[in-house]
Amino acid sequence: MSKFKLLVMCGVFGLMVGCVKGKNGLPYEGWRLGLFAPNYMQVWIETADAVDVRDRVFKRAMSGGASIQTPKNLKGNPRGWPSYPGWGAGKYVYGAAVPRLIYVRWQSLVEPQTYEAYIVIPQAIQQAMVKPEKAFCEFDAKWITDYRKGVTVGLAPGGIAKVWISGPCVSPIEVARVQGEVVKEGPDGGRSGGNYALPLKPETKAYIEKYGVPYGSW
């Protein structure tokens, strides 16, 4: 292909991943992978791996505790998903192009049960992650050019994984809702003898004892 034709293609399809300038085809240094759980529905992430569009694997891009709120006096509502889910607890995946697949294996501590889910990131979402958008940023009351460089995964009992992309000053876009599978070996692939990573927080335990797990609301 001639250089002229390549320039024309990038002009027409400038939002395509392959035509974006910068390291790994990104207009920013790296995208962020974050995870959270509904109020009181405690989660421990064994691993969250990412595969980018260049088929490179980033093992344990995130692990540990998911972001969660446990309001006192049982005033929190775990049902459903927030309109603006935020970024969750997470890390930046430096050195990666935009993701095409995310694998999460987690312990749902309120059940308890261990799940895994494969989350496919569609090409349209990959393109949206590198598309600049003019946005008013309330943090400093300025108009800026922002990007949806955050991938947020919500993890709920029953093996539900819900995914969004968002930026600091732009609205989230829903990516997918995935039904995970039970990991038959149990927590830590059977290495922990069936023992889960953490005990329930007092607020979580109190909520579950009074109201139970609101299956079907996610």
Rank of each mutant, 00 (worst) to 15 (best):
M1D: 15
S2V: 03
K3T: 10
K5A: 11
K5S: 05
G11S: 14
V12M: 12
M16Y: 05
V17Q: 00
G25R: 01
Y28M: 14
G30A: 12
L35R: 14
E46G: 10
E46A: 03
T47S: 03
D49I: 01
R56F: 03
V57W: 10
V57E: 06
R60K: 14
A61C: 07
A61R: 01
M62L: 13
S67G: 08
T70C: 07
L74A: 10
K75T: 08
G76E: 12
G76I: 00
N77I: 00
P78I: 00
S83I: 14
G86Q: 08
A89Q: 12
K91G: 07
V93G: 02
Y94E: 05
Y94C: 03
G95Q: 04
G95D: 14
A96G: 02
A97E: 06
A97T: 07
R100F: 00
V104Y: 03
E111T: 10
P112E: 01
Q113C: 01
E116I: 05
A117C: 02
Y118E: 06
I119P: 03
V120E: 07
I121W: 00
P122R: 02
P122W: 01
I125Y: 01
I125G: 03
A128Y: 04
M129P: 10
V130R: 05
V130D: 08
K131F: 12
K131A: 05
P132S: 08
E133R: 05
E133A: 03
K134S: 07
A135R: 02
A135L: 07
A135I: 13
C137R: 13
C137S: 14
D146Q: 02
R148A: 05
V151N: 01
T152N: 04
A161G: 07
S166E: 07
S166R: 02
S166I: 05
P168F: 09
C169E: 14
A176Q: 06
R177P: 06
V182E: 10
V183F: 14
V183S: 12
E185A: 04
P187M: 04
D188L: 11
S192G: 01
S192P: 13
N195R: 12
A197E: 08
A197C: 08
A197P: 11
L198R: 09
L200I: 11
K201M: 13
P202I: 12
T204A: 10
A206S: 10
A206R: 11
K210L: 10
K210Q: 15
V213F: 01
P214V: 08
Y215C: 12
